[in-house]
């Protein structure tokens, strides 16, 4: 195997991994702490991409547009928490799934009304266009930027949850929300902030994805399934678990697609190997999840030990 190809696939895997991490972090916190299943988390991802594209088209400045999109999506997240999620924290998961599935349909129709049914495109800024030489091989700058931004967000989140008072409230609320409330902490407000933060992180992932592929209706639902795989592998409620799970899923998926056909070609005919490899690659992450669940049903790094 060509080492420069391996490096490229590794970077691709990392880039998918950090995007999944940004999505998974919010989903796993909301699921783990509030015991709330939010199928509409992917809608925040889509909103982030659309809002960034819309603001870039209007202002021509990438970073301010991105920041604006994150703030707007966080506000939408707050609204969803207040109007929908808050009423369903104590309800059965089935009601949460039904309500948030309804939200998916709502947001998809809303986007169709505002932006039309055709995909739109989000141009990465000029300073992120072109290639960068890494170990002698060219690699797109935008993908490097995505990996760095994702890792930086991870660091920021680690600091927020591990080192700040808000983070202590979040962790205490995950352990025992009744006791933290009886000790004077407004846990409802903490939950709302977590929900908004999760929405903003999903929007960041969406904006990142938008610079690589078309921004379109339904983009959130596809990646949401991968995101659920990530949080199940990592351990529900655990941000560290989400990071490990996301990188694992990103790398396994990318390596699988790139390498499996070649590996299979060693033992079977090329055309058969290509078809079988592609089929097996799309199953790889589910196999990974099955193995993890068989060995550690609570996930790799569960929030509660």
């Amino acid at each position: 195997m060509d080492p420069s190809l391996l490096l490229e696939q590794t970077l691709n895997g990392l880039q998918l991994g950090v995007m999944l991490f940004l999505l998974a972090a919010g989903l796993t916190l909301v699921f783990g702490i509030m015991d709330f299943i939010n199928l509409a988390h992917g809608s925040f991802y889509m909103l982030g991409a659309y809002l960034t594209a819309w603001l870039v088209g209007w202002s021509e400045a990438f970073l301010p547009s991105l920041a604006g999109a994150l703030v707007l999506t966080a506000l939408v997240g707050l609204l969803v928490e207040r109007l929908v999620a808050r009423r369903l924290y104590a309800a059965d998961h089935l009601y949460q799934v039904l309500a948030t599935f309804g939200l998916i349909l709502f947001f998809n129709e809303l986007i169709r009304l505002l932006f039309g049914p055709q995909p739109i495109f989000l141009e990465p800024p000029a300073w992120l266009a072109g290639q960068l030489e890494i170990a002698g091989a060219p690699y797109p700058r935008i993908r490097i930027a995505i990996v760095l931004a994702g890792l930086m967000s991870g660091l920021l989140l680690w600091w927020l949850i591990g080192r700040t008072r808000l983070g202590m409230w979040i962790r205490a609320g995950a352990d025992d929300r009744e006791t933290i409330a009886a000790l004077g902490v407004d846990i409802g407000l903490v939950f709302a902030l977590v929900f908004a933060l999760g929405a903003a992180l999903a929007a960041l992932a969406g904006a990142m994805a938008g610079t690589l592929v078309a921004v379109r209706i339904g983009m959130g639902e596809e990646i949401l399934i991968l995101t659920f795989v990530v949080i199940v592998i990592g351990g529900i409620g655990s941000v560290r678990g989400a990071l490990v799970g996301a990188l694992l899923v990103g790398l396994v998926d990318t390596y699988g697609r790139a390498l499996l056909p070649d590996v299979l070609a060693l033992v079977m005919e090329r055309s058969v190997a290509d078809a079988a490899g592609a089929a097996m690659a799309s199953m790889a992450i589910y196999l990974l999840m099955a193995v993890v669940l068989a060995l550690r049903p609570q996930g790799l790094l569960p929030a509660r030990g």
Partner: peptide, 9 residues
Amino acid sequence: FPNLTVLEQ
């Protein structure tokens, strides 16, 4: 809180 240190609680 099992997952917070003494100081954090």
